[in-house]
Computed example of a mutant assay.
Amino acid sequence: MKSIQHFFISATIMLTIVSQAQEIEPKQVKQVMQRVADWQIVHYSDLFSDHKEPHHPLDWTNGALYVGMVKWAAMADDDTYYKWLKDIGQKYDWQLHQRKYHADDHTVGQMYIELYRKYKDDKMIAPTREQFDYIMYHPAKTSLQWQSPYHQSRWNWCDALFMSPPVWAKLYNLTGEKKYLDFMMKEFKATTDFLYDKKEHLYYRDQSFMGKLDHGTKIFWSRGNGWVFAGLANIMEELNPNSKEYEYFMMIYKEMAKKLLQIQTPQGHWAMSLLGQEYYPTPETSGSSFYTFGLAWGINQGILDKEIYGPAVKKGWNAMVSHVTPEGMLGYVQPIGAAPGKAWPDKSEVYGTGAFLSAGSEVYTLYGGK
């Protein structure tokens, strides 16, 4: 078994090295995005990872898929993908998922708001507004300490910063009501003060990883920080670049971007334990796609220098594309977890597809796509 795994890893490294030399063409970016999106829709309820049954359509896993899918829908040549997303929203009456306070169950709200922007149907966002108003006026007062009572009623794990804060930012942008922004800022700052390592410029997944070492390195989970980095871009997209709130997020974003540039692997991906690439040589495409998205977004926004960060985006995107099968499955997506682990060429997950489509949307723009 080990010899087979070593073969896959060696073959992957060779393919990635070859792909890094390839120039990126907008037409090709769009083609691979469509292939991945179409494959995922066909296999939406299939099992390609370690879970026993399909994810609920409103689960965070699918919510992350929709974040990328709606970016792709805006690029596609017809409304096929918008219709697919709209049908999901209509089927579930535009409700968020089950847990009122839990950030994971807010993720689908990002898709609802983007569909509202296209269709202008108040039904699409009414339940989200009602639930967020309730949370705002009945805020959770639980501790950010891990495994304290009702602890995930607040954003005490870094993944949460992708899931819920962008919904608050979008509501603020839509309505102009600053109460949504103020609530989001207060909670985001609390989480950052708790989980952000100011020396390493990376986030701990949660309190349980603080003070622990893996092969002598601090444990910063790749997808966990990918959630944060992509979340920062999605939040900043909604804010006035001249505002103090934008400035706060940009400071964190730039610190993380600089760190990510330093720790990208020669193959173009980011190791599952960000500071331990020597011990985690297997590529992983969900976190790496989020970093590719976030860095490309920063260049497109004029925040990052293209001469400095452009090569990292090129390496990252070409590495991700090298893990897409001819049918359109994105391989090497780490299964659901909370820490560095393993990934395989024949395992995929919907959130990995969402990350890939997000990355493609910005890479397409970066390389001249219109």
Score class of each variant (00 low, 15 high):
Phe162Arg: 04
Phe290Pro: 01
Gln301Trp: 07
Lys141Ile: 14
Trp94Gly: 06
Cys158Thr: 04
Ile303Gly: 06
Met251Phe: 12
Trp84Val: 06
Pro281Cys: 02
Lys83Cys: 12
Met75Leu: 13
Glu237His: 10
Phe194Arg: 11
Asp121Leu: 06
Ser143Cys: 12
Leu274Ser: 03
Met236Val: 08
Asn173Gly: 04
Ser322Trp: 11
Phe220Ala: 00
Tyr112Cys: 06
Trp94Arg: 00
Gln31Asp: 10
Ile299Gln: 04
Lys123Phe: 01
Ser348Asn: 15
Val18Thr: 07
Met210Thr: 05
Ala73Asn: 04
Asn318Thr: 04
Ala230Asn: 13
Asp93Phe: 09
Gly211Val: 00
Ala160Val: 03
Phe356Asp: 05
Thr175Ala: 05
Val313Lys: 00
Gln145Arg: 14
Asp214Glu: 10
Gly231Phe: 15
Pro335Lys: 07
Ala103Cys: 08
Glu284Cys: 09
Phe132Ile: 14
Glu362Ile: 13
Phe48Met: 12
Pro311Ser: 00
Leu232Tyr: 13
Lys83Glu: 13
Asn242Tyr: 15
Thr285Pro: 01
Gln145Met: 13
Thr365Leu: 15
Ala126Tyr: 04
Leu15Trp: 02
Gln145Thr: 12
Pro340Trp: 01
Gly268Asn: 09
Gln264Cys: 03
Gly68Arg: 15
Ser361Ile: 13
Gly276His: 08
Arg117Asp: 01
Glu255Val: 08
Asp79Phe: 07
Glu255Gly: 14
Glu187Arg: 13
Lys118Arg: 11
Pro335Phe: 06
Met33Lys: 01
Leu366Arg: 15
Pro54Tyr: 09
Gly316Leu: 05
Val363Pro: 02
Lys212Phe: 03
Met184Trp: 07
Met33Asp: 06
Asn318Val: 01
Gly276Gln: 02
Arg205Pro: 03
Arg205Glu: 09
Tyr203Gln: 11
His151Gln: 15
Glu245Tyr: 06
Pro139Cys: 02
Gln95Gly: 07
Val67Gly: 11
Thr282Val: 13
Val108Cys: 07
Lys179Ser: 05
Lys342Glu: 11
Trp168Met: 04
